[in-house]
Computed example of a mutant assay.
Amino acid sequence: MTQNVPLRVQATDKALDLIKTLQDENGDILFHQSGGCCDGSSPMCYGVRDYMIGDDDVKLGHVGGAPFYMSPSQFEYWRHTALTLDVVPGRGGMFSLENGREVRFHIRSRIFSDDEVKALEEAEAA
């Protein structure tokens, strides 16, 4: 099995700083990236007690100690994409914990290389 399995999700320093602030204020948090009507590049951040993860939601990993989930349909679309959680100026989603701070979480993405896809497939098959 390939030892260098790429991360499906990671975070910039700005995002890690905001995550830490939100954890200090709210306790344990999580992220959920859904498709549909909302801005697909803006994941929602919730307190873990405030959002029920679906049985089929896909856990991509952790950022700053917070789990990051995606709906199954969105994962099928983005399965070959590396995500980076960042912070940009703007307003967070109505129920997202960063709302009201004049910044919002934002996803940047890139397509995995062929070698990265192979490493992920090997890791998932193990």
Rank of each mutant, 00 (worst) to 15 (best):
D17A: 06
Y46F: 15
Y46C: 00
E25K: 13
D28T: 12
R79C: 07
P43I: 08
S109I: 15
G35K: 08
L30M: 10
M52C: 05
A119W: 00
P72E: 02
I107K: 06
A119P: 00
P89L: 06
R79I: 13
F68N: 00
L7M: 14
D56G: 00
A125G: 07
G47F: 02
S73V: 07
D50T: 08
R79T: 08
V5L: 07
D115R: 09
I29T: 14
T21F: 12
A126K: 09
K14E: 13
G100L: 04
S73G: 10
S42T: 04
I19P: 04
M94D: 09
L7T: 07
Y77F: 11
A82E: 10
L120K: 00
M1K: 03
L85C: 02
P72C: 03
S96H: 03
D115H: 10
A126V: 14
M44Y: 14
D39K: 12
G47L: 07
M70N: 04
G35C: 03
D115L: 11
S109W: 15
S96L: 01
Y51G: 01
Y46D: 01
A125H: 10
G90F: 01
L60V: 07
E102Q: 15
S96G: 00
E116K: 04
E98C: 05
G61R: 02
H62C: 06
F112H: 03
M52V: 09
N4H: 14
I29R: 02
R101G: 01
L30R: 02
F95G: 03
S34K: 00
D24G: 11
D28L: 00
D17I: 12
I29S: 06
V87N: 08
R101T: 12
A126Q: 12
D13F: 05
L83M: 15
M70K: 04
P72D: 02
W78S: 06
S113R: 15
G54A: 01
A123C: 12
L60W: 03
L120E: 08
G40F: 04
I29G: 03
T81A: 06
I19Y: 02
S71W: 08
M70L: 06
T84E: 15
L18R: 07
F105I: 11
I19F: 04
A15S: 05
Y69L: 09
S109V: 10
H62D: 11
I53T: 07
S96V: 04
C45P: 03
F105A: 02
L30N: 10
M52H: 13
N99V: 13
L16D: 13
L120R: 05
